[in-house]
């Protein structure tokens, strides 16, 4: 809770960071969560913050 609030405070778009609690036995839920999140992040576009260009 503190992490997500802080990341939004320093300028990360709401929704880019998410924490979920999923048991190792819930394979379907993992896949579904990841798919959902990938879609959401694709809409937000590539992350520009904290990038390490070399």
């Amino acid at each position: 809770m503190l992490v997500s609030r802080l990341l939004e405070y320093v300028g990360l778009e709401p929704g880019r960071f998410e924490m979920r609690w999923i048991s190792a036995s819930e394979g379907g839920k993992v896949a579904e969560t990841v798919r959902e999140m990938t879609e959401r992040i694709r809409k937000l576009g590539p992350n520009r913050k904290m990038r390490d260009e070399r």
Binding site: E8, Y9, V10, G11, L12, K49
Partner: peptide, 10 residues
Amino acid sequence: DPAVRSTFWD
């Protein structure tokens, strides 16, 4: 706005 905050800390 998140974008304003982002620039501020950047």
